[in-house]
Simulated scan of single mutants.
Amino acid sequence: MKSNNKSQESQIISNKLITNKKESQKEAKAVVLQSVGYPFSFPLMDTHNLEVADKNLFEHYAKEQWMGLEVKEGSYLFDQKILPDFGFKVVNVYPNNSVIGEHTSIVLVIDEDNLKNNIKSIETNLTLEDVIGQEQAKNKCKIIMKYLKNPEIFGEWAPKNILFFGVPGTGKTMLAKSLANELKVPLYLIKATTLIGDHVGDGARQIHDLFEMAQKTSPSVIFIDEIDAIGLHRKFQSLRGDVSEVVNALLTEMDGIHENEGVVTIAATNNPEQLDYAIRSRFEDEFEFKIPTREERIAMIEKSRKTMPYEIKLSTNKLAEMSKGLSGRDIKEKLLKSALHRALYEDDDEITLKHFEYALNNYKSQNNPPKYMFG
């Protein structure tokens, strides 16, 4: 009898654990699938490509049979109805390790290049506190945060299109990542250079798919880096047909011809004055990112030196003086990391002035810095 009681107690505990696990799992906002075919090859049968006639119908069909299943990036789902054992790879799910539920958006992507370029959302653990300096830009981001928390109350007054501009390495991408993480919303990050394809229409289709996915998973953030790659003023470029198609598609989406409630588009550039007016005029606000001040450089250096494997035999004030004119990224990568690697190369067990002087001279020779640097 005792053994039976113990067995029953064990089963009750096991059931409770399973129930608690299910309750603690979050519902997936979006699942992106790619058809991979059958696990076995059949003669005269296409086992990979799957043509979907109606996206909405496929989403309903997929949700009906996979409701309640836990999904994570890299796992597989198998059809058990019309095409038994036909496989789909989960190429992206937000958030990862979540459950397909009633409100989950399910998207099937056929074009692998399209998938690589823009359909995947990214997750990060960055916070606004990790962005040192750029207080003006961070303060302006408050309105974006308020909008994404309650998009329904803004209506036509929503912040839709924002331009980040400034010297490379000053934290434009970092701020976008931290913004999305603070709000726990999907971030779709894409470089504009990847939109220029070999065939006219490829980039335009990617733009429309990107905004469609962002809308399905709203509230969400789209971040287009290096937008000047497609948006240069006509006098700065010989406009190719594919670039023109991409620009027109982007303008269409930014103008809100489709309802994009809860979606904020942020673009970044180092050269705002070179952007074509048709594109720049679509941004209702512009956030400038500046070279860090002395106080900000001190904070960056103090934060970085805590994690360095070797001791720095130089004061933070001295390093802040040496790094005048450098961006936050260059302070870490070109000064601190380069000095550390030099010390390792010379078999020294501490980082001294000579290592930093080497790093700085190496940086100057490689970059031909503008006149305002190191002056």
Rank of each mutant, 00 (worst) to 15 (best):
M1I: 11
N5M: 14
Q8W: 12
N15E: 15
K26L: 13
K26M: 12
F40W: 09
D54E: 06
E59D: 06
Y61Q: 03
A62Q: 05
W66Q: 02
G68N: 08
K72D: 03
E73C: 10
D79W: 07
Q80V: 09
K81V: 12
I82K: 10
V90Y: 07
V90A: 06
P95T: 03
V99I: 15
H103C: 01
T104F: 09
S105N: 07
I110G: 11
D111Y: 07
E112S: 13
K120P: 03
I132F: 06
Q136E: 15
A137R: 07
C141Q: 00
M145Y: 00
K146P: 01
N150V: 06
K160G: 03
K160Q: 12
N161T: 04
G169M: 13
T173Y: 08
M174D: 03
L183K: 06
K184R: 13
V185S: 06
P186D: 04
Y188A: 05
K191R: 15
A192F: 06
T194M: 10
H199T: 11
Q215C: 11
P219E: 08
P219M: 08
P219S: 10
F223R: 05
A229N: 14
H233R: 10
L239I: 10
R240P: 02
L251H: 01
V264Q: 02
P272V: 07
Y277K: 08
S281C: 12
I291V: 15
I291H: 12
I298Y: 09
A299N: 12
M300Y: 07
I301P: 01
E302L: 09
K303N: 14
K306D: 07
K306T: 02
P309I: 02
E311R: 07
S315L: 00
K318I: 06
K324M: 08
K324Q: 13
G325D: 09
S327I: 04
G328Q: 07
K334R: 09
L344Q: 12
F356A: 08
Q366G: 04
K371P: 06
Y372K: 12
